[in-house]
Write a protein that binds this DNA or RNA. Structure first.
Lengths: 189, 189
DNA sequence: TGTCTTTCTTAACTTAAGTCAACGAATTAG
DNA sequence: CTAATTCGTTGACTTAAGTTAAGAAAGACA
């Protein structure tokens, strides 16, 4: 399982034997069953996740209704916006499948960064890329209709349609389940 | 004018005389007239901006229509998503008022970071905060109606309503100018 | 100053999403 | 395996945004 993380890292930086050994010493791979709440609204976040297998969603509670805002799956990092800060989280994180993930803490990060500064640089660079991608996703959302957004999702993350309940997809697209149902009917003409 | 930048920095880190002197040596404050295009779609971005006075907007060109996605004003940093990368920009940056701004380049940044590492740490920390704020803004956008979004804008950035043409606000809210006009009529009952 | 352009509003009409309610299908739990 | 819950679809109706077009108001410019 740790191989998955090394495999991912190796796309960006050379894996030295020392690094491999160091990472294998740390016990930070965890298993979560479907339905596990990883973070609750109002709680302080002290863990970030790197998904090896499975799927995690973030959702807000708006007047008793769950509003799904993101889905994270294999090879994606989940860094709560309040991670490391002492700010209470505004949203929940839930495993919507049995999930295997690497779990990071601020302390562990500091330790690794000290030993392997190249990982800190990498994380910073990846952070910038993610930020740019995020801006773009937001702009795209503003510029398109719910139907266009659904078609884009079908194209870009077809796996999600299979593994995630439709009412969560609807909420992710900013619409009600009934509307998504009608959109689906409309487009398969 | 450079005082403005020092004033801003001083909120976060102590300003040493050395730092003050160093920053004052650098000629990086520039003046742009209303209408100046700072970045064009397809162009590589090599400048970021810190607004001292004025207002900048980012917009995409979607099938010939301008879609405004963000407004930046006093004390805000404008970092194009393609800044420093060699990726062509997907959007435009335009001064919508006469604007005075500090202009940064990757080279200048590297230089300053080497001399004052605390500024690099600060920028990283601020980057994380901005990222978290951004996530929250997106979630909020998904969860609210155009009318609620307009009311929130009135509350959070009342100055924008005065200084920005309404059709740009409309596009920023994800709707057409006619709809914004009707929303305005609706809410002042 | 007066003309041209941009901006904002209004109206009539179309389109699609929200709401409420009902029902069958699928999934989960005991 | 059955009962209970969750999930997805459909229909009738409401509400609000998109579209098209026209005209008034405000700004820019020469």
């Amino acid at each position: 399982m740790k191989n998955e993380i090394l495999k991912h890292l190796s796309k960006y930086i050379p894996i030295t034997e020392e690094l491999e050994e160091e990472l294998s010493k740390i016990e930070f791979i965890k298993f979560f069953t479907k339905g596990t709440i990883l973070l609750e609204e109002g709680k302080i976040s002290n863990e970030c996740f790197f998904i090896i297998k499975g799927c995690i969603r973030s959702f807000y509670n708006k007047d008793g209704e769950e509003k799904t805002t993101e889905f994270y799956s294999e090879e994606q990092a989940v860094v709560p916006s309040a991670y490391g800060n002492k700010i209470p989280s505004k949203y929940y994180l839930e495993c919507i499948e049995d999930t295997i993930a690497g779990v990071g803490t601020p302390e562990l990060e500091t330790e690794i960064y000290q030993k392997f500064p190249q990982i800190e640089s990498l994380n910073r660079a990846l952070g910038e890329v993610i930020m740019a991608k995020y801006q773009d996703t937001f702009a795209e959302f503003k510029m398109t209709s719910p139907e266009e957004r659904y078609l884009a999702l079908l194209k870009n993350r077809p796996d999600l349609i299979q593994r995630v309940p439709q009412h969560q997809i609807a909420s992710y697209l900013g619409i009600k389940p009934e509307s998504l149902s009608r959109i689906r009917k409309r487009i398969m003409k």
